[in-house]
Simulated scan of single mutants.
Amino acid sequence: MSDHSVFVIDDDEAIRDSVLCLLRAHGVRARAFASGVHFFDNLPDVPSACVITDVRMPGMDGAEVVRRLKALKGDAWPIVVITGHAEVPLAVQLMKAGVVDYIEKPFEPNRLLEVVRGSFAHLDDLLLHRAEVEVAARRLARLTPREREVFQALVQGRTNKHIANDMQISPRTVEIFRAKVMEKMEADTLSALIRAGLKVAPGYAADAFART
């Protein structure tokens, strides 16, 4: 199904085994933990993964697992909650905390698989975005300080005339800098340049991007 892993946290051995069998039967790398404490004491060293956790467990409940994992990993580790105790306030609390889904036991196997697939798709998008940011950052590092000034001004929507006035250089010199910036950033259009700016410095590129 994917190169990503799934980590299952549940104090019920039968549930752990059934979820592991389901995932592994569909080609998913999966590992189980009997408690939240055991999970964090042996936190797997992987950049991204999907976590499936029960809510009511001894030592550390599912809400605490979610809180700690979000603080440590953010969106890089999407979390799915499964529970035999359907409580609306708790479900709302966990969804607001950022869990991907809240599934009641007994659950439909296809429902869980569908949620896991969605989590993997999110991770693929996240990894692609990170790769694009790294590429844009490497290209930005090629620019000289003056070229960076022009780059920032361009993605802020400044015209050549305004840039020339601000930098106290001629419009022709701005055109030369602009051409070098476009070449080094490997951007064929101004829109492509702005998108690169959004990746490496979203704060100063956002306004200009909204106008394209």
Rank of each mutant, 00 (worst) to 15 (best):
D101R: 11
N110T: 09
E149R: 06
P202A: 04
A192K: 07
T53P: 01
D125E: 14
I9R: 03
L143S: 04
A14Q: 14
E13L: 13
E175S: 15
N42A: 14
F177W: 09
A97T: 06
D166M: 08
K161P: 01
A208K: 08
K73S: 13
A32V: 13
L143V: 05
L72W: 13
L128H: 12
F177A: 02
A137F: 06
R142C: 07
R148F: 00
L94T: 07
L126S: 04
L20K: 08
E132C: 00
A121R: 14
D124Y: 00
V28M: 04
P145V: 03
R195L: 09
V100I: 12
L140N: 09
V135D: 12
L128K: 13
P47N: 15
A205W: 11
E134V: 09
F40L: 09
C50M: 13
K73V: 02
A206T: 11
N160V: 13
G62R: 02
E149Q: 15
G74H: 09
F40A: 07
V100P: 03
T53W: 01
V174C: 14
R67L: 12
R195G: 03
R195V: 10
F33H: 09
A86Q: 01
K70C: 10
D124F: 00
H4N: 10
M95H: 11
A206G: 00
E149P: 04
Y102E: 07
R68Y: 08
K73W: 03
V46Q: 10
F7Y: 15
E114I: 00
E13A: 15
L126W: 02
A91P: 02
L128C: 05
L69T: 05
S5T: 06
A30N: 05
A187G: 10
R16A: 07
R24Y: 07
V115Y: 05
R148V: 05
L154F: 10
D3C: 03
D11C: 05
A14I: 14
R158Q: 11
R142E: 15
N110Q: 11
W77R: 11
A25K: 15
E186S: 09
T53R: 03
A210N: 10
E114M: 10
G98R: 00
R172E: 14
I176N: 13
A131V: 00
A63F: 10
E147C: 01
I169Q: 08
Y102D: 03
A201P: 04
